[in-house]
Nucleic acid binder design. Sequence first.
DNA 1: ATGAAAGCGCTAACAC
DNA 2: GTGTTAGCGCTTTCAT
Lengths: 367, 367
Amino acid sequence: MSTTPTVYDVAERSGVSIATVSRVYRNPDSVRAQTRERVLAVARDLGYVPSGNARGLASRSTGVLGLCFPDYSDPDAESEAEAGAGGHGDEADDEAAMLYSDQIIRGMERAARRHGYALLIAASLKGGPESLVAKVAGRVDGFAVLARTVPTEELEVISRRQPVVMLAGPRESNDLDHLDHIEVANADGQRELTRHLIEDHGLRRLAYVGFAEESPDVEARFRGYVEACRAAGIEVGAEPDLRVAMMTQAEGARAAEALLDRPGERPEALLFANDQMAVGALHTLDRRGLRVPQDVAVTGFDGIALSRLVRPALTTVRQPMRRMGEEAVELLVRRLSDRAQGKTEDPVSMTLPVSVARRASCGCRAA
Amino acid sequence: MSTTPTVYDVAERSGVSIATVSRVYRNPDSVRAQTRERVLAVARDLGYVPSGNARGLASRSTGVLGLCFPDYSDPDAESEAEAGAGGHGDEADDEAAMLYSDQIIRGMERAARRHGYALLIAASLKGGPESLVAKVAGRVDGFAVLARTVPTEELEVISRRQPVVMLAGPRESNDLDHLDHIEVANADGQRELTRHLIEDHGLRRLAYVGFAEESPDVEARFRGYVEACRAAGIEVGAEPDLRVAMMTQAEGARAAEALLDRPGERPEALLFANDQMAVGALHTLDRRGLRVPQDVAVTGFDGIALSRLVRPALTTVRQPMRRMGEEAVELLVRRLSDRAQGKTEDPVSMTLPVSVARRASCGCRAA
DNA sequence: ATGAAAGCGCTAACAC
DNA sequence: GTGTTAGCGCTTTCAT
């Protein structure tokens, strides 16, 4: 079998130098039309395709941007999706499993396309000393990383070589973090949603379900909740009413049980730190014969597709994940051109606004 | 500012040769633990990251799979999404714009992840002689292409170098097409859907809206429609009742107008070659005061997210787009290992089954 | 277990 | 316009 053709083969067969072959691809106008056609013709029937690797090596740029994200995947959501894909599940199938990361991918892809970049995506899946990031980092001009995919420290090192933007993770400390950041207004969103429950629906006995692991995002949400409560003169502790180990549907369902079984008056509203848990809670409430929102209001956070598909539809805070992807690309592209011009700018921290989606589970629309 | 560190820098600072540095990353066990740690430590504080390009060049493999797709994007759908993202649109926002290609990306990404590959995605956006494919082809071990992104001829050439699988496009001719193919059972799906309308709902005056451009997929769908009609003794022409220039919502709306304005009895059902058009038709019918499905039934094809969100929910044929992406990766991975072993197999043609989603717009569920 | 040396296929100065 | 010549940073025999 033939070895894959290179510039040398094309050059030889078309009677020009390798430099000319290269020019035909990089800067067609710098080659006489006739020569160019000849080269192109030879290339075509030789089956020549320029090696991206060789190019990248020689030119120190790839025309590719990257995205690294953790291996999210709510086992529950995934299995529901599988069932649906198999043709036997209910309607809440494929799209319901649209994750956070999928939306970001969409946003980045669209923006990258506009700027003429391709997108390299890779989910973490721990390997040897050669981590995921390294793999991506070595093949792109710049990349975005979802929070908690990789230690900030490692990123910090890489960002000396190329632009890196951290998504959905707040700056850790100004010393050890010179990365660019894009996050969403977690506290604002949760505060506004809480205010809505209190002022517009007149609810005052609220319960908040948070996350056991350290997660700046989730903490910011809780903070927003606390602020809204205090502003309304409702007393709240320094801790969520409950913290779960995983923010999944199953855990959300369990959390709802726990909250309902507590002695004392039943809460008028259950606020969850994400949609998945809220959906799980909906199941529990339904099973226990409690009506939502008449007996208890329920809210989530994120605005995933599933939140709209469940009944009652979930009131939640929508994060502009897609936009986050777009902004990440814009930022990377800007950094890249800055570097090309030798400019150096301070790290950026950008906060994207969120919006409250008022649906049926808080009582805003008929269930 | 410092130049980015290379194997040489690491080698020098840790007192070993570049070969050893390389080994530390490629095959850690072949290096004495003590040496390895030393190298790793130096690498860490030098901020060394192996260059993917240099690696790819030297080893002739990248660990990356690719996907090329055309710059789909229904202007209507996109703008609706924009409005939604801005916070002012209705609920049918972000996810509604989930395209065909997005689902395939999801499928490929998941499968690629399982096999330890990263995914490079790029939408066409015509450029110089150096087409999109070439860009992708040069950076991956193998890739998938959505039909109508790139001339089969060009792919044929590339497939001599690396595995290429064509998605959703039937084999063009056995001569000039040795590519692997994965398509869906377009004819089967449309036939079954049509049969359902005829037998289960007793409808007999049907109208089919197709596509003006050449598209094997759409033709196959129409063929299925014709077969079902004939089988039921309903006479149909060799051509769709109408062919539109673009398969968008706007065109679908227009098509519905045209069909309704035709003299003679009003059709009992409007069948569209894709969901977007069917959704457009729904708007028209609503505006003209016709009830769906009581006055007219409407059906689409694809099973995009939007099809479930509109009212009445659209009866359609669901394509397993995500699965298509997964199968594509499986096929590529298999081909890659075959090639590594010097095996050569005949091109594969795989057809994935579709399923009819019976919803409200045909009369199966309450609107 | 480690080193030396020869590429991998291309781009980028710089000559002509 | 086109050719010459160095690398780009790594992997890979082949020695040792």
